[in-house]
Computed example of a mutant assay.
Amino acid sequence: MNGNNTTNSSTYESIQACIDRRLDEIEERASAIIDTRWQQVMHHEKQNVGWVNRSRLSLRCYRKGGNIRLEWSGVKWKKQEDGKVLRLRVHIKKGSNHNYPITRLLPFMAEWEQPIVEEAEEELSQIRREAYHLNRALTSIRYAWKAALKRND
């Protein structure tokens, strides 16, 4: 039965490795989308100086295990008594279907920024959806692997 355990383990490890590779690929794609958006924002802000033209939306990507998080947050500026300006991050709640409704992003969005945000969010929502299903698949594979190991013991 030990040979069977080795076969099961290598099969499950191969499946897990394939899913992990795909998660790496979509994380790279998400980072590229975020970088592109950031470059567009920086380009606009350099050409149009002043607080009115600054973006008040922040976008980040991070990964914990098989979970990829792509999150928008708002930015509020608060002036302290000593004259320093603090940057505060405001959580924006995600909607259903792995997306952020534009109505929740609008309060933080500059008019010039709307097409950039809409394009990025459309692509990122698809990535969130795929990452969600891949993460669930990883969980299922782990449970199946444990069940196979128990059965073969």
Rank of each mutant, 00 (worst) to 15 (best):
S125N: 05
G83M: 11
K79S: 12
V90K: 09
M42I: 15
Y132K: 14
E71L: 13
F108A: 10
A30I: 00
I92N: 09
K78M: 05
E45H: 05
G3A: 13
K94F: 06
I19A: 05
S58K: 15
Y62Q: 01
T103Q: 10
V52T: 02
K146E: 13
M42K: 15
W112F: 10
G95S: 13
N2M: 11
A120R: 02
I116E: 07
R22V: 13
E121Y: 09
Q16M: 14
K46R: 15
W38I: 00
N152F: 07
I127C: 12
A30F: 01
T139H: 15
S10Y: 03
H43E: 12
N4E: 14
T103K: 13
R63L: 04
S96W: 08
S55V: 04
D82E: 13
E25W: 05
N152H: 09
N4V: 10
R56M: 02
N99I: 07
E113T: 01
R37W: 15
Q80H: 07
P115M: 03
R29S: 11
G65S: 14
S9G: 04
E25K: 14
W145R: 07
D35W: 10
C61E: 08
W112T: 02
K64V: 07
M1C: 08
R37A: 12
R54P: 06
E113V: 01
K64H: 04
L59N: 05
I19K: 04
L105M: 06
D24W: 05
I26A: 12
S96C: 12
S96V: 13
G66P: 07
L149M: 14
Q16G: 12
E130I: 13
R151C: 03
Q126E: 10
M1W: 09
E121A: 10
E45I: 05
A110V: 03
L23G: 01
